[in-house]
Design a protein around this nucleic acid. Structure first.
Lengths: 185, 185
DNA sequence: GTGATATATATTACATGTATCATATGACAC
DNA sequence: GTGTCATATGATACATGTAATATATATCAC
């Protein structure tokens, strides 16, 4: 249920089109939830059927018409209920990286190569991503109602991302050291 | 594609029934991949259609008959190809916990309560889980062909789990501190 | 004037994950 | 003798995620 709830959460701030929600999603929630635009459009349609959002067709000049969604009272109710329901907090992971490491003995050289990619890519994006998110937090802080208050929570999610990246980089390096030692035996 | 590949990976060690694979999965891969027995049965059927595994019906006394699967040459090929293909290493996450923290301003008390649950539950399972996995690694090390060699990779996955849990516990505590300070203002 | 990029929504098909139920038997506790 | 747990597989329905394609227009670079 997290996708519709993410959309409801964002719609609490502002009315928005599917297209803009898709971009907003990428900017804000993408570090912990990935959704494609086709999924967002489908989900919005379903949410309208359920009465959680309503939409208005807006005719534009020079561009395709757009459909602007807003959250309904019922949508707000659903969102608030979810905020008080037991969520899947110790969430199951589906992690292809660990799957491939687990069976790494089948191809040690390849596993080593992959671990280096993981280390390098995470290292490369850690700083720029942190900066980008910090900038976005500041932007939304002033443009979203109650943004000053919300921003503490956004910061928590950003902190998680940083801690996670650092953990992965260190873990990958440790694995690389072990593997290289083993392969050079 | 990770589920079928996980099953192929396990079938390389031994022939196995869907039921046993389901249990093995829970013991070994569950920390980074969750699969229900119904999904495993369905997947095995499909893999047999594709010729990646073959099965034999074994009549048992006193118990329901069982279907024993073994990996085929083609299955081994598919598995090895996958070990050399670019995997989704910087994997997307779908993390309901972070989703709920992100919108935490909608219900600070509830968010605080959840973060405490997260901290406590992860703390409670960290030690026992580590022990359990260490025991399992030792068990499989001697019972699986090439187990001595494979065990280094299993250990890496276990290390990841430990580092991840510690990171989450620390992060949750930091968030709790911040939130309590804010709420007591 | 051609191609790339951004705006905007929608459909199709398939892959994967979750939840619940159905079936069948043996062993064990109460 | 009843209920629960373990063994064993499967069907059904639905929810969710991914991939690819279609349509239509404006702007900008070359």
């Amino acid at each position: 249920m997290s996708l519709p709830l993410g959309l409801l959460g964002l719609l609490r701030y502002n009315t928005n089109t599917g297209y803009d929600l898709s971009k907003l999603f990428k900017e804000s929630l993408n570090s912990f939830w990935h959704a494609q635009h086709s999924q967002i459009h489908r989900e919005l349609t379903r949410m309208e059927e359920k009465g959680w959002v309503s939409s208005q067709n807006v005719i534009q000049e020079g561009r395709p018409n757009k459909r602007v969604y807003s959250i309904t009272d019922k949508g707000n109710e659903v969102f608030n209920e979810w905020m008080n329901e037991p969520a899947d907090l110790l969430c199951n992971r589906h992690n292809p990286l660990l799957m491939s490491v687990f069976f790494g003995a089948a191809s040690p050289q390849e596993t080593l190569r992959r671990l280096k990619i993981v280390r390098d890519e995470w290292t490369a994006i850690l700083e720029p991503n942190t900066q980008k998110h910090r900038t976005l937090i500041n932007k939304y802080k002033s443009s979203v109602p109650n943004g000053e208050n919300e921003s503490m929570y956004w910061q928590m999610v950003l902190d998680y991302g940083v801690a996670d990246a650092k953990m992965i980089i260190k873990w990958a390096q440790d694995c690389i050291d072990k593997l290289e030692k083993e392969l050079n035996k």
